[in-house]
C-alpha cells in the first residue's frame, strides 16, 4: 500500500519504526537477552558503603540501589512499560475518539449526555479513583492499564468532540450530505481522516507521561509491586540519587524518551500520509 511505501521514503519514520520494533522485540525476548535475573541482589553489586556500582564490564548499565543488574531490570521492565504505554494509551485513544466523534457528530441530547459524562470522569481525581479500585480489586498490571485508560480518554474525547463539531459544519460535509452519503461514509471517509493529526499527537504525547504515571501508581501501591521492575519505578526509585548515581535515572529515562520519540516519529509520518488536506503535496 502507498502508506507503507511512504513510510519507507521517510528516514526519520523508519528510524522510529526500527526503534519501536526493537523495543518490542527486547520485551518479548527478555529472558533470552537479559544477562542476569532482574531480581538477584548481587553480593558484590554494591560497594562496601552500599553505593550502587557505575556501569562496568560485568554490569553494563551499572547496578541499582540493591545491587541488582540495571540492564536486566530494564529489559524486563520494558514489558511493563510497553504494555502500559501502548495498551493503556491505545484504549484511551479508541474510547476517547469514539465518544468524542459520536457526541460531536450527533450532538443534541446524546452529545450533551456523553460530554457531561466525560466531564464527570475528568473531574474525578485520578489518584483517588486508582486507590479505590486497587483497594477493591487488589493491585495488578491490568488495573494500572485500566486506570490510566480511564483517566486519559476524557481529554481526548473533549478535543475530538470540539474538532468534530467544527468539521461537521464545513461545506464539504454539507456537500457529502447533499449527494446522499450515509453517516458511516461521512464519519470514516471524511471526518476521521481530518481528526487523525490530533489523535496521533495526543496518542504519542500520552506515552511518556503514561509510563511515569504508572510509576506513581506503583508507588501508591496500585500497580507493579517491588521487586518487579518497570522503567517508571526504576526512575522513581533512583531520582533522588541523581547526583551520586546518575546512571539510575539516565538509562531508564533515555529508554522512555526513545519509546516516546519513536512512536512520535511514526505518528508524525502517518499523519502526513493519511491527512487528506496534505495528500498529494510535498
Amino acid at each position: 500500500m502507498s502508506v507503507w511505501r511512504g513510510l519507507l521514503r521517510r528516514p526519520l519514520a523508519m528510524a522510529g519504526l526500527v526503534i519501536a520494533v526493537a523495543l518490542v522485540a527486547v520485551a518479548i525476548a527478555a529472558p533470552l537477552i537479559a544477562p542476569y535475573s532482574p531480581y538477584e541482589q548481587f553480593f558484590d553489586g554494591l560497594t562496601l558503603e552500599g553505593a550502587p556500582l557505575p556501569p562496568n564490564e560485568r554490569f553494563l548499565f551499572g547496578t541499582d540501589l540493591l545491587g541488582r543488574d540495571l540492564l536486566s531490570r530494564m529489559i524486563y521492565g520494558a514489558r511493563t512499560s510497553l504494555i502500559v504505554g501502548l495498551l493503556a494509551n491505545g484504549i484511551a485513544v479508541l474510547v476517547g475518539t469514539a465518544v468524542g466523534i459520536t457526541a460531536g457528530f450527533l450532538r443534541g441530547v446524546v452529545g450533551a449526555v456523553l460530554m457531561r459524562f466525560t466531564d464527570l470522569v475528568m473531574a474525578f481525581p485520578a489518584l483517588i479513583l486508582a486507590i479505590t479500585i486497587a483497594t477493591l480489586r487488589g493491585p495488578s498490571l491490568g488495573l494500572v492499564v485500566l486506570v490510566i485508560a480511564l483517566v486519559n480518554w476524557g481529554p481526548i474525547a473533549r478535543v475530538v468532540y470540539a474538532e468534530t463539531t467544527s468539521l461537521a459544519e464545513r461545506e464539504f460535509i454539507a456537500a457529502e450530505r447533499a449527494i446522499g452519503a450515509n453517516t458511516s461514509r461521512i464519519l470514516f471517509r471524511h471526518i476521521l481522516p481530518h481528526l487523525l493529526p490530533i489523535i496521533i499527537v495526543w496518542g504519542t504525547l500520552g506515552i511518556s507521561t503514561t509510563v511515569l504515571f504508572e510509576a506513581l501508581l506503583s508507588y501508591l501501591g496500585v500497580g507493579v509491586q517491588p521487586p518487579n521492575p518497570s522503567w517508571g519505578n526504576i526512575v522513581y526509585d533512583g531520582q533522588s540519587y541523581f547526583q551520586s548515581a546518575p546512571w539510575l535515572v539516565f538509562f531508564p529515562g533515555f529508554a522512555v524518551a526513545a519509546l516516546a520519540l519513536s512512536i512520535n516519529l511514526i505518528g508524525d509520518a502517518l499523519r502526513d500520509l493519511l491527512d487528506p488536506t496534505l495528500r498529494g503535496r510535498h
Binding site: 531480581y39 538477584e40 540501589l65 521487586p227
Partner: peptide
Amino acid sequence: PRMAQVIQQDLAAIGIKVELRGL
C-alpha cells in the same frame, strides 16, 4: 521498600515466599 526486598530474597533462600505489600 529496599529493606523489604532484601528480606524477601533472604527468606526465599530458606523456602519462604514473601509477597511484598507496600502501603
